[in-house]
Write a protein that binds this DNA or RNA. Structure first.
Length: 782
DNA sequence: CAGTGAGCGAGCTTCCGCTTGACTT
């Protein structure tokens, strides 16, 4: 007879708890929610706003098992998380399993330790229906927004698009950032740096770098300043030492882990989560989806022991952190190693690196402040035969000395823009005294340009969403991939532009000027909005500004809190919302407009006099000449990936219609030039030949095309070096990178040594190469 | 890395949050 059944959300958690509780308890997992709104329908009564739940197919088997065990148990303990979603999971379990109020207990614990769980069992309570209702409100609201808005987009923009409370705002952030960048006008300015020489106490010569505290706007100011430096005297006017304390960052939450793993290890958001999941399942770390920075007392003690053991008493400082994030639910702990005494672990290279990061961050959070001494030296410029005027520009040199490293011994948090100058401040200054004269070596004025806003990365977008209280730890990674899957946003490289800047240098008594070039504004792996993303965003902003408001989530969260406290009825909130929302949806669906969303007219086609415009077609952005109701059919051309709907010009659009172009005839078949998915090509007698980069498809001649066709034929002939016939023939072929083997639909590279005698290879040799390659890939799998 | 070059006009698409497998590229 089963005495006690405990149900938690995660199987890994179930396994741990079962160990603590002994043989009278069986612990099972619900694997998250067991019941939800129907997948394919709205599943909400639009009159009463009541939801219709169902157990999805993939959960049926599990529910059956749970029901069986619950039926046999004399006591059932519902131990899902203490937040809104957790309470709802418990309630759904009650409903679906038909649990009896009398012998069902709701319990919660904040850390997975034996005493905490035993304590929780001593204080069972009932299901908190207010909290459950707050979850139902959240669920129903999200479904209404998602399932009402998406069909509007199918009709007005393009099929299979989607909109939602979280994803649409995520896209908005990216679209608006891109527009800010477009609108930003970079202003030049001049930064002045100098090198001074001085003699140290021991007689050796050293140098000091210093920067001018004034930045010049005009080049004429630079010229005047450098001129004034020629005969000036440079004198130390003050030396100030200031102690600084630096505190460690709090332990990891999902969002901070994603950011640091991106910055320090180069992981994508979803990579981080997958690796963390494996570490969690193998018992290495605590739960990886959390917004809490709290550490258990167990971890505090273990960290302390470990830090004292490794670095001594002085490095330890026990700290408790508190979560301020908006909407944080604190059902879990921070992400930390399960056992702090495990400084390294077994596993893949990626698992080791992520674990190491988590270990160091956790340890650092329990370590002493770093103590730093910052020295600032100001250097006055005294004109020949005079004194420095008050308020005149002066040079400053800064140096830092770490007096006590504290937590810096293990961990330093990265920031998004520290690719340059990270070590700038950490250099040491030679001793200098007030009034000391320094020898000027070189003064350099470099032209710089003011920096515009920065594009989001996956991780910095997550950070922003968290700041706005939008989305939850379990949805950050899925949201990032949804907006990319829908083609609203893509991770890509933005080509920068070449830019010239001047460098003026004063050396001795001579000023020289040089012009240099650099690439400006290039960006790698950042999130860029697509045309579809921009059009959908503008459309939603126009018709549904309430949903797109950055504060929408915060406002509804406030309502959810009121429901959780019992001061507002959840169905009332839903009715209020739907009463305002539904008519807008209807109105938007029924407004017939002349133009499609995002349509933009570029001008008239000089050849036909018909209008030329861009719009979102069924398969993405297209240029169209002539309207559909015209006598002639309109002509279409897909927008190439390097052109945007907002920026393409009439001339660029007309270019697209110049292909395919007929060149003439060859061997009785037409020769045409077209543009395909992989660039321009020549088509002749159903055979395609790629056009090399140096040939322009708009000007290429028939002669050149024929030459390319013949070259391709020759290559084709030479491609087959040798064939070993059989049931599965092995072929030796000539490829772009030398000879290779093909067998059973797969290709195998030949060792370099065999290249020269590719034509003389025996069947045995080929089989050997294939077997060796197969074995290698087998090993890799393991 | 080993060669590529589409487009019917029916019926489908879609949300956010909990949580892991069991399926193939």
């Amino acid at each position: 007879m089963l005495k006690n059944l405990v149900i938690v959300e995660s199987p890994a958690k179930a396994k741990t708890i079962e160990k603590f509780l002994g043989s009278d308890y069986k612990v099972m997992s619900s694997y998250g929610h067991i019941r939800d709104l129907k997948k394919k329908e709205l599943s909400i009564d639009t009159e009463t706003l009541e939801p219709h739940y169902e157990v999805p197919d993939e959960k049926q088997k599990l529910v059956k098992e749970l029901r069986q065990c619950a039926g046999q148990a004399s006591q059932v303990w519902l131990a899902s998380d203490e937040d809104r979603e957790g309470e709802a999971i418990s309630w759904h379990l009650c409903e679906v399993l038909g649990l009896d109020e009398k012998n069902t207990n709701r319990i919660v614990f904040h850390e997975i330790t034996k005493p905490a769980i035993l304590e929780a069992i001593k204080h069972p309570r009932h299901i908190d229906m207010n909290l459950v209702n707050a979850q139902q409100a959240r669920r129903v609201l999200d479904r209404l927004v998602g399932f009402k808005l998406s069909p509007v987009l199918w009709r007005k923009v393009k099929p299979a698009l989607s909109a939602g409370r979280v994803q649409s705002v995520a896209v908005r952030l990216i679209v608006e950032r891109e527009r800010e960048i477009q609108a930003f006008k970079s202003e030049p300015y001049y930064r002045v740096a100098a090198v001074f020489a001085l003699t140290a106490a021991d007689g050796s010569a050293t140098e000091v770098k210093a920067e001018l505290d004034t930045r010049f706007k005009a080049h004429s100011e630079v010229e005047a300043f450098l001129e004034s430096c020629k005969d000036a005297t440079f004198r130390v006017s003050s030396v100030a030492k200031k102690p600084l304390r630096r505190m460690p960052a709090p332990p990891f939450t999902t969002s901070t882990l994603q950011q640091e793993a991106a910055r320090k290890l180069g992981f994508t958001v979803s990579q981080t989560m997958m690796i963390a999941q494996r570490l969690y399942e193998s018992g290495r770390i605590t739960y990886m989806r959390t917004d809490s920075v709290n550490l258990s007392t167990l971890c505090l003690a273990a960290s302390r022991d470990e830090i004292v053991r490794l670095w001594g008493e002085r490095y330890s400082k026990t700290r408790q952190y508190h979560t301020h994030a908006k909407g944080a639910q604190e059902a879990h702990e921070a992400i930390r190693p399960t056992y702090m005494d495990a400084t390294t672990i077994d596993g893949t290279a990626q698992e080791k690196r992520l674990y190491d990061l988590i270990w160091k961050r956790t340890a650092a959070s329990q370590m002493a402040d770093a103590e730093i001494e910052k020295t600032t030296v100001t250097i006055a410029i005294e004109p020949a035969g005079g004194k420095a005027a008050a308020g005149a520009p002066q040079f400053t040199a800064t140096g830092e000395v770490v007096k006590f490293d504290g937590f810096l011994k293990v961990y330093r948090e990265s920031s998004d823009d520290d690719d340059q100058g990270a070590d700038e401040g950490s250099r040491l200054l030679p001793p200098m005294a007030e009034g000391q004269e320094l020898q000027r070596r070189e003064v350099t004025a470099t032209e710089r340009f003011s920096q515009g806003p920065v594009r989001y990365t996956e991780a910095s977008l997550v950070h922003k969403l968290e700041e706005l209280g939008i989305g939850r730890p379990s949805t950050y990674a899925p949201t990032i991939s949804t907006i990319q899957q829908r083609d609203y946003v893509h991770k890509g490289d933005h080509k920068g532009e070449e830019r010239q800047y001047t460098v003026d240098t004063l050396k001795g008594k001579v000023v020289t000027q040089k012009t240099r070039t650099e690439m400006a504004g290039s960006d790698k792996g950042k999130l860029l909005p697509t045309d579809i993303g921009i059009v959908v965003n503008d459309f939603l902003m126009k018709y549904f500004p309430v949903i797109m408001d950055y504060n929408f989530t915060a406002k509804v969260e406030q309502k959810f809190d009121e429901i959780a406290e019992g001061s507002e009825k959840w169905t009332d909130m839903m009715k209020d919302f739907y009463r305002d929302f539904e008519p807008v949806v209807e109105k938007t669906l029924n407004t017939r407009s002349e133009h499609k969303a995002g349509e933009r007219e570029l001008g008239t086609d000089p050849a036909t006099g018909k209008p030329v415009f861009v719009k979102i077609g069924r398969y993405g952005p297209v240029v169209q000449i002539g309207a559909a109701d015209d006598n002639d059919k309109p002509r279409f051309a897909q927008l190439p990936s390097d052109k945007g709907m907002e920026t393409i010009t009439l001339d660029e659009a007309l270019e697209l219609f110049k292909l395919p172009r007929e060149l003439g005839e060859f061997e009785g078949h037409k020769v045409t030039v077209g543009a395909g998915r992989f660039g321009p090509y020549i088509l002749h007698n159903k055979k395609y030949v790629s056009l090399p980069k140096e040939d322009d498809p708009l000007t290429v001649t028939l002669g050149k095309a024929v030459a390319l066709i013949e070259k391709k034929r020759l290559l084709e002939q030479q491609r087959h070096i040798k064939t070993f016939n059989g049931d599965n023939p092995i072929e030796v072929l000539n490829g772009r990178y030398g000879p290779y083997l093909t067998f059973g639909g797969k290709n195998y590279r030949l060792p370099k040594a065999m290249h020269a005698r590719a034509a003389d290879l025996t069947l045995e040799e080929c089989v050997e190469v294939i077997d060796a390659a197969e074995q290698k890939s087998e090993q890799k799998k393991k």
